[in-house]
Design a protein around this nucleic acid. Structure first.
Lengths: 158, 158
DNA sequence: ATTGAAAATGACCGAAA
DNA sequence: TTTCGGTCATTTTCAAT
């Protein structure tokens, strides 16, 4: 479950480029790190194999795909033992992008994206509220995503 | 502010590959779409220029970087007019990865990543609670991120 | 673990349809 | 908008250090 090996400063430097631009040429990273392209290649491969790197993605503006509405939903279960089956049900909802098991007033915190408020209402009433084990939900609609960034990798992430 | 042009099915197909693997060769996408590599290249460029594609990133397991703890924090302001300055303050916290202006019981919902509970406590007490305008916070620690995925691009996203 | 060089593959640009 | 073709750049592998 845990990470297989500790990354060093060169790995961190490589990642600091890759998390900002997945298509940057390895040779460019190599020049900045002062080592060969082959070394970059092998280090990236090792980090991929060990699971440190989970993959790479293009970031697409959700609006362009018709998913202009973002919302968080706090979920309260009526019986703790329904946990597993509820997760499976939530997993099958295509609009859900995240689900956390959290401390505090809710069992789960779900993040999802949908087309519009009608669509959101539909998910709430026809999907979520119909899942056995879910007692109550509380919806927080994101009116504006003010910050979206990655964790800083280096002390100074210029 | 809005998107400059509507993408078509080919664009959607291109994106469906790119959001899963940012380093997939354009030629491979070209083969699957039945058009030339140059066409893929141009369509991607157009989507980048128009802002539909916001960039590309490697996804790194936060644990590997020493950020094993994920938490959400609901923030309540004491005066609505402090909104802007508070956002600026929050923006400058390196551990914060998201900040939403939300409906419901909170003004903001913040997502952040930190090393451990001590680190989280430090952010809560020494950083967040010290920002003028923040009246109250409520912390939800993510004990387990059960789901993490992207919005489905196609009806069937095999 | 890193390197340098070789071979294979892909990105990118211009011209033409 | 697309394709084709050419050139240049990058990825990837491998033997050697």
């Amino acid at each position: 479950m845990s990470v297989k090996y500790q990354i060093d400063d060169i790995d961190r430097k490589i990642l600091s480029h890759l998390v900002k631009n997945a298509r940057i040429p390895f040779l460019e990273i190599a020049r900045e790190c002062g080592i060969s392209g082959a070394a970059i290649h092998q280090r990236v491969k090792k980090m991929e194999d060990s699971g440190i790197i989970e993959g790479s993605r293009f970031i697409v503006k959700p609006d362009a795909l018709g998913f202009g509405v973002c919302a968080f939903i706090g979920v309260i279960l009526d019986h703790a033992h329904t946990y597993k089956t509820v997760v499976k049900e939530i997993e099958s909802i295509p609009e859900v992008t995240e689900c956390h098991f959290i401390t505090g007033g809710f069992t789960f915190l779900i993040k999802l994206r949908c087309n519009d408020h009608q669509h959101l209402m539909d998910i709430l009433i026809n999907t979520l509220q119909n899942i056995p084990g879910i007692a109550k939900t509380e919806t927080f609609i994101s009116l504006d995503q003010l910050i979206e960034k990655q964790i800083a990798l280096s002390p100074q992430d210029k």
